[in-house]
Amino acid sequence: MSHIDLRYTSHLARLGFKPEELKVFGPQVDKILHFVEQLNKVDVEGVEPTSHPLPLANVFREDKIAPSIEMEEFLQHCPSRHGSFFKVPKIIEEKS
């Protein structure tokens, strides 16, 4: 039975947790994982995974320009802006 590494997984998912939340979450998630692991009993030898629920294929759009949206209206509601840019905390140069 797997035991989830919550620290690693929550970092991958960029999810902040309070320590007390983690205490509740660990056992809950482990229990759910234990449940889904019943799938190990199913023999899937030679079975293709479902890649799409229905056999649709080759759906394209043509290379035609469609109008963009009225950005000013959208930017009005965005969390933080600088002119027409979205603003985020400074990204530190990724060098050590």
């Binding site: 889904v36 799938l39 190990n40 199913v42 899937v44 079975v47 995974p49 479902t50 890649s51 629920p53």
Partner: peptide, 14 residues
Amino acid sequence: AYYLKAMKVRTKIM
């Protein structure tokens, strides 16, 4: 073990 396996069982359910 998880996602791929589940998608295979999904095929069997279909």
